[in-house]
Write a protein that binds this DNA or RNA. Sequence first.
DNA 1: ATGGCCTTGGTACAAGGA
Length: 255
Amino acid sequence: MQLATWNVNSLAVRLPQLLAWLDANPVDAIALQETKLVDERFPHADLEAAGYAAQWFGQKTYNGVALLTRQPASEVVRNIPGFDDGQARVIAARVGELRIVGAYFPNGQEPGSDKFAYKLRWIDALREWLRAELAAHPALVLMGDFNIAPEDGDVYDPVAWAGQILCTDEERAHFRGLLGLGLHDAFRLFEQPPKSWSWWDYRNLAFRRNQGLRIDHILVSDAVKPLVRACAIDKAPRRNERPSDHAPVVVTLER
DNA sequence: ATGGCCTTGGTACAAGGA
């Protein structure tokens, strides 16, 4: 079984690339972020034709998440229950024995800003909701664009990025707070190539120079961890014409 | 060339991303 996450940076633009990727990588489920589509415009028919049931939750212009699954999804939750949020950032569902949570974490823009405070508050709310979710659904996967590089080794130039957005101590402490629930960074369960990133800025030839950050993650619960067989970032779509600035991350589970 | 982006809404360019 394979699960994936991909920030597509506009599903309207990237739908052909997504369909091509799913054709080559027929994962069992994929969480999408930054669909940037109101719900009426979500291309569920194209995805169903490709063999995927879709759950989606969007808004105008910004954000927007979706969960595509080979088998039907149930018990769908949109955003964090009890957290008043005008932004579409979370979609969760039960898929077989798994609870899958797809999330698009706030960017935060600038440490100390209102958006940064919102980011930390949002993660706090996510963590407390997940604490309850894990109690009810021990086999849980949290995946998405976390907008956090957890360690210096997840940053191409940690000195230049020290204290910058995505790399602050507060964001990293919040990431560790999620791990404290009994979640594990699937990518780090395995030896990985050095300089493995999931996002490269569109500017400055960053991809060609491999100047990126690893900010897209798949966290697996204690119950899922023994089933994890592999985890990898697929850089291939970043070489497409008109690519997303993010690459998909894929985890392989036994069964 | 020593700097270089992309998307949306809306139709000029600002806002947001990371």
